[in-house]
Structures are given as structure tokens and as C-alpha cells.
Write a protein that binds this DNA or RNA. Structure first.
Length: 267
DNA sequence: CTACCGGGCTGGTTTACGTCA
DNA sequence: TGTGACGTAAACCAGCCCGGT
């Protein structure tokens, strides 16, 4: 992000930025681990007022598959109104099914004779509350399913494995969307906070610049020679350069330090 | 090392269904 | 009661990645 340079050679720099790091979520299942290594961006907002020439590190956020962060994604899923209907179920996707799955489908498919007329139309099944609850419960334990789990769950729910698979895919997508919304809200708040902080530090910077310009010549000597408390304007003795004994010298990387709002205890 | 294949995943889209004005 | 708009979720598709051969 931006780094406001010091236009008056005061040696002060105001920085505004995010440091981002990636935290990998460990997948529950052993298969396809890489797919499930969801990159989770952890943004740490940072705003600093410091000496120019400091190095600000920005972590690389472009590792792995990037997560898209939408701005206008604030829809929330409503609870499923579960009215079970029957599905013709025979869709062209069947060509992809293994013989085992097709057999399972034959057993579990709830196709009635009259529904055979609707074979070519895509009928949609509404899951019952019980089915949804069990799927949700299973999703809490494993966000992805291996083939055995899929088969078992399908048998348990009297659904086709493909339906279970699709449900999990859509469920993951919804989870991700929701997480994106949460991330977006968080980033908005961070942005607001940092904007306020930036404004405050800009003001502080202006004040410091003005103060420096107003100083008589002897006060413009290096901080190692003379120091002055900004609150009581008393000139201190010869400083040894250590910030420990000299609260008015600039720390190597000052962070949210305001000598005006944080008057020296030494005074 | 490279090519191919199968399986699984994601992002996006389509569409059936439920709700509500 | 009928209907159209709209939201939701089931189902689908294309494309990508990865492991195995």
C-alpha cells in the first residue's frame, strides 16, 4: 500500500499497509490434500510513523490458488425449506457413473412410473430435514468425502452417491462464499480503522514538522545532542542515544507512538 | 522426462422449486 | 385463487490439478 514520503526532509515517514500471511487449513481427509489446502489470508493491518529508510515487509499473498474476495457478496443463505419431492434422477451425468454407482442409484432412486415421463427434464430433489441435518452433521466432520464415505452416506440417506457429492460441492461453495463475506466485512473494518489512524498520524506528522521548523537553530541539532520534551518544552541534557533513557528520540520503528498523547513520564 | 487417463475440485451457470406480494 | 418476481439450492458444465501408469 501507500507510503507517504517525507516532503520536508524531516526524516519521518508515514506508512499504511497490510501484512498478509497465509495459514493453511489442514484437511480432514487424506485424499487430495493439496486441493483442500485452503489458503486463508490473515490480514494484519499496520500503520506506522517512523524514520525514512526503514524497510517494511509485505508478505507474498499470491501463493497457491488465490481466493477471490468479492465486495458485493452479502447474501445469506436462508434455512432450507425442506419439502421432499421425487426426482426423475436420470440425467446425462449418468454416463459418468461407475457401474457400482449406477447399481446404487437403481436401488436408491425414487423414480415412480409416472415420473418416467419426465426423464428428459431435470427434476430437482428437495432434501428432507432429516437428510439435510445428516448431511450437515457429516459436513461438520469432513468437508470432503472419500468414495467410501460417499457411498455409505448415500446408502444411509437413501440418495444417489452423485447427489451426496453434489451436495458437498455446493455446501463447500456456500461455506466459501460465507467466509468471503466475513473476510470482506473484516477488511472493510480494517480499512476504516486504518484510514482513521492514517488521518490522525498525518496530522501528527504535520504538527511535528511545524514544531521542527519553529525550533531555534540549536534545537535542530541531532537528537543525540539535545532533546526536548514536547509537552513541557524543557530541553534535556546530552542524550546517550538510547530510547530507554530518552523518550523523545525516535525509536527504530515507532508504532502508534504519539508523544503528545503519551506525555513523558520523565517530566 | 513426457504423455495420457481418471478422479476430484472449483467457479460459474442453469433450472426447478418455494415464498411472497 | 392465480400469477409473476425473486431467492435458494440442486444439478450441471468446463477447466484445472494431481497422482498413477
Amino acid at each position: 500500500m501507500g507510503c507517504l514520503d517525507d516532503g520536508c526532509n524531516t526524516g519521518l515517514v508515514l506508512g499504511l499497509g497490510f501484512s498478509a500471511s497465509t495459514a493453511m487449513e489442514k484437511p480432514e481427509n487424506s485424499n487430495n490434500q493439496k486441493h483442500k489446502m485452503m489458503n486463508k489470508l490473515c490480514f494484519e493491518p499496520s500503520l506506522s510513523l517512523g524514520l525514512s529508510g526503514e524497510i517494511y515487509n509485505h508478505h507474498d499473498v499470491s501463493k497457491g490458488r488465490e481466493e477471490s474476495v468479492g465486495v458485493d457478496l452479502f447474501r445469506h443463505a436462508s434455512p432450507l425449506s425442506a419439502v421432499s419431492s421425487f426426482s426423475s434422477g436420470r440425467v446425462k451425468r449418468e454416463r459418468d457413473l461407475s457401474s457400482e454407482e449406477i447399481e446404487a442409484e437403481r436401488v436408491s432412486s425414487r423414480v415412480s412410473d409416472e415420473d418416467e415421463d419426465a426423464i428428459n427434464t431435470r427434476k430437482k430433489l428437495r432434501l428432507t430435514k432429516e437428510q439435510s441435518a445428516l448431511l450437515e452433521e457429516s459436513f461438520k466432520q469432513h468437508s470432503t468425502l472419500n468414495p467410501k464415505q460417499k457411498q455409505a452416506l448415500a446408502r444411509q440417506l437413501n440418495l444417489r452417491p452423485r447427489q451426496v457429492e453434489v451436495w458437498f460441492q455446493n455446501r463447500r461453495a456456500r461455506t466459501k462464499l460465507k467466509q468471503t463475506e466475513v473476510d470482506c466485512e473484516f477488511l472493510k473494518k480494517c480499512c476504516e480503522t486504518l484510514t482513521d489512524e492514517n488521518r490522525r498520524l498525518q496530522k501528527e506528522l504535520q504538527e511535528l514538522k511545524a514544531l521542527k521548523l519553529a525550533q531555534p537553530f540549536y534545537m535542530q541539532l541531532p537528537a543525540a545532542t539535545l532533546t526536548m520534551c514536547p509537552s513541557c518544552e524543557r530541553i534535556g541534557g546530552v542524550a546517550d542515544g538510547s530510547s530507554k533513557n530518552n523518550p523523545f528520540s525516535m525509536a527504530p520503528k515507532p508504532h502508534f507512538y504519539n508523544p503528545f498523547t503519551n506525555p513523558s513520564a520523565a517530566c
